[in-house]
């Protein structure tokens, strides 16, 4: 009788741990990890003296251009399992899903920051005609979109002034 109870508890325990475990882990570790990467990004953004990106397609008037090149930066990012779970519940009622905003916003800022850093590392003064593109990345081979992962691509023309 006692053995049966233990076995039942073990089985239920295993089922609960394997189904809820990833969600709990995602809730605890995911929030911490996301806060950390957002803080790091904010530090990097503060480290650059000025924003060298612009969506205009014109260069500064009266300046000589020495060099120009196409620059690309991308990032693939995804919300956590916990955020997707909350978003799934929220999508029944509709409205703004703020849980998905966080990583999307981070991904976009990160792609822009990578472009800024790449441009300043290569010695370009400005990046003009900045364009951004978002696309979803299907994750498994079954053809079903899962995991909510997306790619952000930012590109523009790097300009070096004399």
């Amino acid at each position: 009788m006692a053995e049966d109870t233990i076995a039942t508890l073990l089985i239920w325990g295993f089922i609960l741990a394997s189904s809820l475990g990833p969600f709990l882990f995602s809730w605890l570790v995911g929030n911490w990890h996301q806060k950390r990467i957002i803080e790091r990004l904010l530090e990097r953004e503060a480290a650059l003296p000025r924003d060298n990106l612009s969506t205009l397609s014109t260069t500064l008037p009266g300046k000589t251009i020495v060099d120009s090149q196409l620059l690309l930066a991308n990032v693939v990012s995804a919300p956590s399992r916990w955020q997707l779970f909350l978003a799934g519940i929220k999508s029944i009622f509709g409205g703004n899903i703020k849980h998905l905003d966080m990583m999307l916003d981070w991904g976009r800022s990160e792609a822009l920051q990578r472009l800024r850093e790449q441009a300043s590392e290569l010695g370009y003064d400005d990046v003009i005609n900045l364009r951004m593109e978002t696309s979803t990345i299907s994750m498994n081979n079954g053809g079903r979109q899962k995991g909510g992962s997306f790619e952000i691509l930012a590109y523009g023309t790097g300009i070096k002034y004399l």
Binding site: S26, H33, Q34, S77
Partner: peptide, 9 residues
């Protein structure tokens, strides 16, 4: 990696 979210390198 998708469990915690963030970049998928």
């Amino acid at each position: 990696k998708n469990i915690v979210g963030g970049e998928l390198k």
